[in-house]
């Protein structure tokens, strides 16, 4: 082929948008009524985090973090958050596909309902889960009677509570990516003999993988920090349902240093998540 050929237009663009540089003249002419509250707001967001770092018992930190209680909570948190993310992926990606690629009456309403847990107070979510899956819940009643399965106040209950709160993040993220993806790739796959599911599995899924990864990270972070729904639906039993946030809350009452140490761990995780999503959020529009 000659060197005159243009690169193919097919395929998503990979070059990142250039970061905008703020010129030196940007500060000139910033009105005080905006500058002062703006800087106050910045301080308001950053000072508490700073306090956490300043007051951290750095010297005793290694012992704090290696104590069996902390380890137990950390382990449980990691396991349940990861499991909740897995549940969200298995159920959430197909749900996102249905919302993005099919037409049915009431889809808008359904989409709104799916995102409801995003804004619902987590405690309310926990109560709702109890009413659905609790021993006397509308579904839990049958689970107990037929299979002898009890979900509340178990590690599985923690996973369910976390997934309930975290899955909408994944669904929203994946649905957005699906909408942005060109559906004609699926058509092209179909004309090559692929069923709609094969087209999804072999073409769409790889194309939206970045969106799924971002959604999964978001969901995982949300699950890791989940407090309200967990304590309501699963309780607070060390080693079984006591996750990191619950341990922090409990520790704050009798061992503040431990609480600070645990908080530092969660802060570190959050910063890591933010760093992982940096490209997606901070540079992409």
């Amino acid at each position: 082929m000659t060197s005159l050929d243009k690169p193919a237009a097919a395929g998503p663009r990979t070059d990142r948008p250039r970061r905008r540089r703020v010129g030196t003249g940007a500060r000139r002419g910033v009105p005080l009524p905006l500058l002062v509250p703006g800087l106050l707001g910045l301080a308001f967001l950053l000072v508490p985090l700073l306090a956490l770092l300043v007051r951290a018992p750095w010297r005793g930190l290694p012992e704090q973090l290696t104590s069996p209680e902390v380890w137990q909570a950390l382990q449980l948190s990691l396991i349940t958050a990861t499991a909740a993310t897995a549940v969200s992926l298995v159920l959430g990606v197909p749900l996102a596909w249905l919302l993005a690629r099919t037409e049915f009456p009431g889809r808008g309403l359904l989409r709104a309902l799916v995102t409801l847990p995003l804004v619902l107070p987590p405690v309310v979510g926990g109560v709702a889960l109890l009413l659905a899956l609790g021993r006397n819940g509308i579904v839990g009643k049958w689970l107990d009677a037929w299979f002898g399965i009890t979900l509340p106040f178990t590690t599985t209950g923690v996973i369910i509570a976390e997934a309930f709160v975290a899955m909408p993040f994944l669904v929203i993220s994946v649905e957005g990516t699906l909408r942005a993806a060109d559906p004609r790739y699926e058509e092209a796959a179909t004309t090559l003999g692929a069923s709609r599911f094969t087209a999804f599995r072999r073409v769409t899924l790889p194309l939206i993988a970045p969106g799924i990864a971002a959604g999964a990270v978001l969901a995982w972070a949300r699950a890791l920090g989940e407090f309200g729904a967990t304590i309501t639906f699963a309780g607070n039993f060390p080693g079984r349902t006591q996750t990191m946030p619950l341990a922090v809350y409990l520790a704050l009452q009798n061992d503040p240093d431990a609480a600070i140490a645990l908080s530092l761990v969660l802060l570190a995780v959050s910063i890591a998540v933010l760093a992982g999503l940096r490209d997606r959020w901070m540079t992409a529009s």
Binding site: A8, A10, T14
Partner: peptide
């Protein structure tokens, strides 16, 4: 080659 590495004629 991945498609984005192909010229228009090759694609």
């Amino acid at each position: 080659a991945k498609p984005r590495r192909l010229s228009g004629g090759q694609a």
